[in-house]
Structure formats: C-alpha cells, structure tokens
Design a protein around this nucleic acid. Structure first.
Lengths: 154, 154
DNA sequence: CCAATATAGTTCAATATTAAACTAAATGCA
DNA sequence: TGCATTTAGTTTAATATTGAACTATATTGG
C-alpha cells in the first residue's frame, strides 16, 4: 500500500506538527534574538532579567529554576553571571538560612531596556511583515497552551 | 500605513510576548518529549530520524545542518551518534568527494516508530485537553510564521 | 527532644553546541 | 592550464546544561 497518496495521518500527527512548528519558530527566533543581545547577555540571563522586569517580585534561585524549567545547577550558573555583571542582587533569605532571594538591580533594568531596544531592531522586518492585529490574534491560544503545559508538567 | 509603523512600546510588547509564549511552550514540550525518547535518542537525533521518516530524500550533512539551523560541527556529532546506533547510513557522495549522503536505515525507521509511540503516550493527557480541531486551527498561522522566519533569516 | 528525612544551593563529570581552525576537494578565472 | 577561492566535513577549545554527589539548614515523627 503506497503511502504517497491520500494520506490519512493519525490524530497524533496534528499534535506532533504543532510542536514541530513551535520548535522551529523558537529555534529561528532564538537565533535572531541571541545575536541582538547586548552586554554579553545569553538568552538564559535575559530571561531572568525579563522575568523581574515584568514586575514579578524577588524570589529564590530554586523558584527561578522551576519557572524556567532548568536545573538548580544551571540557575546557579546563570545567576553567577548576572551577579558578576551587577544585574541582579542576591541576598540571604530572611527566615531560611539555606536560601537566597534574587532581585533585579537598577543596572539590570537598564540592561534589560537596552536588550529590548536591540531586539526591536533585530525584529523590525518581522514587525513589518506581521501586523499587531495578526499577532495579537494568536496570543490567547498560545497562552492557553502554555498555561496548560505549565500546570500539567509530566 | 499599518499600525506597526509607530514605535509605541506597547506595540513591540505584542511581538515580544509572541516569542516568549512560544519559547515557554517549546521548553515545556521539549522537556516532556526528551523524557519519552527511547534508545537513548536525543531530540536532535530524533529530529534527523523524523526528517527522513517524513519521506524526505537522502541528503548531505550540510543540508541537514541548515535544515535544523545547527552548525556543521553539531551535525557531525549528531550523525556520529546515529551511525553508531545503526539508525542512519552514511555513504560517500557520488560526484563530490568532499561530501557524503545520509539516509535512514531500517533500524532507524523502527526506532523512529518506537519514539512516536512513546511520544503519543507522553502527550496523551495533552491530547485529551486539546481537541484536534482546536490544534488544527492554530497550525496555518504558525506555519506562516515559521515560513517567514525561515525565508528571512537575519 | 532528636534522629531521620527533606530541602536550598553548589560543585563536578559528562554531553551538546558553537565559532573557528583545519583538511581535502571542487570551482573559477586569468 | 594552474593558482586562488570556495565548499564539505572534522576537530578543537570554550560554554551551557544536566544529573548526581555533596554541604548546610529545616522539618518531621517517635
């Protein structure tokens, strides 16, 4: 039986394609974004700055590791770089002497702002090709996916 | 004159959120998928098997590297692993003695099939939460994004 | 209370990836 | 033709990440 015509893919193919498309978009977009990063920021480092720039409150490294789905060790490394650049402040936890609390610094906010400007430049052609309305229309569905995956981690 | 020509910060925020959502979805989904992989396959290795399992013809390492947006060195490594597992065949190029041609092996097809089965298990709860129709509805817009980013690599 | 267990963070060895140097072969152009 | 340049693939040093071991502190149950 030839599989070249009248394809009747199983249901799972649709889900598979969703994640394949998202994976490729992420790869291409990350590649662009990485090249735009100022101050020698990696995407991981930018992610942490971005997290706090969105107004989220100071929190321990472990919570950040969970938020970004990386190991504690990876977060230790990322925070070390950020602290070295003076972009975050890391202080002992008040009540729990095992723990620490990370917050963004003034310098970190400025660096994040710089990064956003560079990103806007790097994606200028993209924003010419896709209207705000077109992109906005996609966000609710993506958010729904993201929230579900986040709340139902396997 | 489209609305994306003004420089209001809120405008770029929409594009920014698009890629943030996609990045998080990718991270969460990849994390799930990685844990499902049989035969010690990495996602990179699975990607290559998947490429050929979709019926695409044998091709040189460099074309694969470009298709997956990784360096030649990374592809050398990925193909070495796959060849070691007997999942791909790598033969000299007929006309160009600098080059090689990679194809999937019978064992590779079987491994890919195993992987698909494990993936379906790992994402069973996801497919219960999201209908095929709901997911299918998102694919055209994502494809459009992917194609544009692919054809306009910065 | 206190011994066992759990938790937060760091360190370490292993692995994947990158950019750049390198080898070998193909192409081009004078 | 023949020399310079380009191209395909490999190798190497540097870096980010992982899982596991380890340290220090906190919690829990007898």
């Amino acid at each position: 039986m030839s599989s070249n015509e009248n394809k009747n893919p199983p249901d799972s193919a649709v889900y598979f394609r969703l994640f394949t498309e998202i994976g490729i978009i992420n790869q291409l977009a990350s590649n662009r974004a990485e090249r735009a990063m100022p101050h020698g920021l990696t995407m991981s480092q930018f992610g942490v700055l971005n997290h706090f720039s969105r107004g989220l409150p100071p929190k321990p490294p472990l919570e950040l590791a969970n938020a970004f789905q990386v190991t504690k060790g990876a977060m230790t490394n990322t925070l070390k770089q950020l602290e070295g650049k003076g972009f975050v402040d890391i202080v002992p936890h008040e009540n729990d002497k095992r723990s620490k609390v990370v917050s963004i610094s003034k310098k970190g906010r400025a660096a994040h702002q710089d990064a956003q400007i560079e990103l806007a430049k790097q994606f200028a052609d993209f924003s010419e090709a896709f209207s705000i309305e077109e992109i906005s229309a996609q966000l609710p569905a993506l958010e729904k996916l993201r929230i579900w995956l986040d709340e139902n981690r396997a």
